[in-house]
Computed example of a mutant assay.
Amino acid sequence: MTTGPTTAGFYRPVDGGVLVEVRLTPKSASDRIEGTVAAADGSVRLKARVRAVPEDGKANQALEVLLARALGMPKSAVAVVAGHTARSKTLRVDGEPSAIAAALRLLAG
């Protein structure tokens, strides 16, 4: 069951985890999360950069690893579920929603 948006805006709790909205920039100088950014449609997204190229899912895989490490979770707990070929992506993070939300708020600054 999905609940409404949180005050943070870029994530929302769902059964067994959290959905996270991300704006990804591939082919960057380093892998990092840079807080949040407002999208053109007014939504808020977590801003991430990865060194990987956007070919054959490499950037998506790098994003999954980056977010898992940043949250202190196994890579298997993080998966791109929407936006596979777009810069705006939705990732699912499996685990305790309140703990994940707290970690995401810290990442966002």
Rank of each mutant, 00 (worst) to 15 (best):
K27D: 05
D94M: 03
G72E: 11
L107R: 01
E34C: 09
V44I: 13
H84L: 14
D94H: 04
V78P: 03
V22R: 02
V78I: 07
S43Q: 13
A79K: 15
L63Q: 08
H84S: 11
L66N: 04
G57V: 11
A40Y: 08
K58E: 14
T90Q: 11
E64N: 03
R12E: 13
R105P: 03
K75W: 04
A48V: 06
T90R: 10
A68M: 03
A103P: 13
F10D: 07
L107V: 01
M1C: 02
A79P: 05
R32W: 01
V81I: 15
R23P: 00
K75N: 08
L24H: 05
E64A: 10
D94G: 02
R105A: 14
T3K: 10
A99C: 08
E96S: 13
R51Y: 01
A101D: 15
V20N: 05
D56W: 12
V14R: 06
T2L: 14
A70R: 09
K27P: 00
M1W: 03
A103S: 15
R49L: 11
D31T: 07
T6D: 14
R105D: 15
E55S: 14
R45S: 05
N60V: 08
T3E: 13
A52K: 02
A70K: 07
D15Q: 10
L107A: 02
E96R: 13
R45I: 01
L63W: 08
